[in-house]
Design a binder for these strands. Structure first.
Lengths: 144, 144
DNA sequence: TTTAATTCGGATATTTTTATCCTTTTTATT
DNA sequence: AATAAAAAGGATAAAAATATCCGAATTAAA
């Protein structure tokens, strides 16, 4: 459903949020260990998330990745997905037609529309905050 | 959402169904032209569909691909997707955890479950017959 | 039985995605 | 100002997905 890059990006952002609640910045090494991902590749994804203002970073000694506490409830899953995979998931045609529309629909246009909208809705409604709190409470897990 | 291979497979199967209603077999060349796909790659996908008994083929002169008329209403979108992309869409974890389950869920486990089940349901309910009839009636399109 | 038309299957090429490595830039501390 | 720690960014490598090519096997018809 999502690319590997996006999977890592979501898990990394959740971990950064948890650490940011504690007021500590984290390194790609620490993140990769926690979410069980390749470190260098994860670092690249973090760069993309910074560029898209999902998270922020501080270079140099005592630097690392963080996210402002007051932004955590405002960041939605959709923001993370969008920063990494773009909006193809919502907007692209299910069968790859270049000009798929109501007036020139692909064979699965309507059937997919419902699924897509459900997905879009879920991504836009789900906040980083609730995902992070579930991890903190032990209700969900970032690896294995 | 789906792989290119799967997109081609779905469109190819629909076209084969339409031609099979007319009692004529079709070649990869004709199919590729009709669905706007790379011919040789499409041929490989057709082989996979034959191996999984979604469609059937006849080698040699006057051969080609076809699907028995009485099977058209029985074949579901899910059969085509399964033959090409497997069942990762329904069963894999949304965030790539190896052991994602009710008792050890990833952060988006429940939210994805709903989407997944909607998708699965749709794929299992949608028949090749209705897709083919929509193309025949001009209600939907296979290319552009 | 020969021929022509066709799918099948293996080998290979290209492109995209995933992953790694190394140098440069930035920054807090000493 | 010097130093050490860290992200940024570019170059490269490996793996997977997409795509092409060609010879072998099969088949219907002449």
């Amino acid at each position: 459903m999502f690319s590997k890059a996006c999977e890592y990006g979501i898990k990394a952002t959740i971990f950064i949020a948890i650490k940011s609640y504690e007021g500590v910045r984290v390194s790609p090494k620490e993140i990769a260990k926690e979410i069980d991902s390749p470190e260098a590749f994860t670092a690249k994804i973090l760069q993309a998330l910074v560029r898209h203002d999902v998270i922020s970073s501080l270079k140099g000694a005592y630097g690392g990745f963080e996210i402002a506490k007051d932004r955590i409830p405002l960041v939605k899953l959709a923001d993370i997905v969008n920063a990494i995979d773009g909006d193809a998931i919502y907007n692209g045609c299910g069968l790859g037609l270049h000009k798929c529309s109501e007036t020139h629909p692909c064979p699965v246009h309507d059937k997919f529309k419902a699924i897509r909208e459900g997905l879009k809705d879920m991504l836009e409604r789900t906040s980083l905050e609730e995902l992070a709190l579930d991890i903190k409470s032990g209700a969900s897990f970032l690896k294995v």
